[in-house]
Simulated scan of single mutants.
Amino acid sequence: MGHSLYDPALMAGAFHPKVIVYYFKQWEDFQMPFHSHAEIEIMYVISGQCVVETETQLISMKKGDFIVLDANTMHRLIVAKPHQCRMINVEFQFTDEGQLFPSLKELVNHDPTLFQLFAKNAPYFVLKDSNEVYHTLKNLVLELDKNSVEAQMMIHLLFAQLMIQIARLAGEAGEAGHQQADVYVKRAIAYLHHHYDCDIRMKDIASVVCIHPGYLHRIFKASMGCTVMDYLTTLRLEKAKMLLTQTNIPVMDISYSVGINSSQYFSAVFKKHTGQTPIEYRKSFKIRRDRTELESRRVTTAVRARSTKG
């Protein structure tokens, strides 16, 4: 018998996750018999759609959905014609074998979202991913495939990251009403901060957040006081200011670095928001910095002179 995800013993000892089974699989016209196992299982839909049936519910899943099944939970997978379903599955247990890495208890004690996850006590839960969980799962499987001592550190780090990401998604999913809208806004903002240097359109952001573009526009403006594209422009300009003042990168290259593929448009937008062109902004910053440094040197010299006289 493996430990349940909610077994109090996990919080009393030094337990660490141990992956037992993992695989990518393309399913087509398939009905799995009802079964259970001692491992906790994560079933993630990469593409297509399927149904996971438990003893009490039929759960429809599509791309980006994943289910976490607690140990010894009866379930089966159904992929009906004409659909196909590509999945990544990871089954794991917790072991108290000696490890140099932080234990599950230590992670839970330092992360409130993990604490809430391990207090959930449900036979399964289904979540919608924004690609973060998938990338971590994929990287985890790649490290597991190496089957080497050197890969163990990365495996443990990735598993800790995976649990925290799942816990955060579970916490977000538990919110309701305007809180759910805030979740969508946070996901949109996170996407913008990770992809501001790309050619981003509203439909791209909405697709990642998994809501209609019009709805995203409304809740984003209500929450942030500006449109999504206004936020993106401000973000890009802040990144540009940093590059202008902290590097010697040419203005044209900075334009491309922040996702604006026209240096002329970049200069026009920059001046509209700052009152200066990028070149003027860089020069004025350099003048202010040089003056500050000069004044600092004068003060230091004066202090040393007074100290010498004394």
Rank of each mutant, 00 (worst) to 15 (best):
residue 84 Q to N: 04
residue 298 R to E: 10
residue 37 H to P: 12
residue 120 K to I: 00
residue 59 I to S: 04
residue 295 E to H: 09
residue 152 Q to C: 01
residue 96 D to Y: 07
residue 18 K to A: 08
residue 71 A to H: 04
residue 51 V to N: 11
residue 132 E to M: 06
residue 249 I to P: 10
residue 194 H to R: 15
residue 120 K to Q: 10
residue 209 V to I: 02
residue 282 R to S: 12
residue 49 Q to P: 02
residue 37 H to K: 06
residue 176 A to D: 00
residue 306 R to P: 01
residue 3 H to A: 03
residue 283 K to L: 08
residue 134 Y to W: 12
residue 255 S to N: 05
residue 294 L to Q: 07
residue 301 T to D: 15
residue 251 V to W: 12
residue 191 Y to T: 03
residue 78 I to R: 09
residue 75 H to Q: 05
residue 253 D to Y: 08
residue 80 A to M: 09
residue 298 R to D: 05
residue 68 V to M: 11
residue 187 R to A: 05
residue 203 K to T: 10
residue 5 L to N: 03
residue 35 H to F: 10
residue 301 T to Q: 15
residue 191 Y to L: 08
residue 267 S to Y: 10
residue 265 Y to M: 14
residue 57 Q to W: 04
residue 159 F to G: 05
residue 140 L to F: 03
residue 32 M to W: 07
residue 54 T to I: 03
residue 288 R to D: 13
residue 103 S to Y: 15
residue 177 G to H: 01
residue 24 F to S: 01
residue 95 T to V: 08
residue 19 V to R: 12
residue 114 L to H: 03
residue 201 R to W: 07
residue 156 H to R: 09
residue 112 P to D: 05
residue 82 P to E: 06
residue 5 L to H: 02
residue 194 H to F: 04
residue 44 Y to E: 05
residue 144 L to E: 08
residue 149 V to E: 14
residue 97 E to P: 01
residue 124 Y to T: 00
residue 42 I to T: 11
residue 192 L to P: 13
residue 53 E to Y: 07
residue 267 S to I: 03
residue 17 P to M: 03
residue 136 T to L: 14
residue 183 V to C: 05
residue 71 A to R: 06
residue 3 H to N: 08
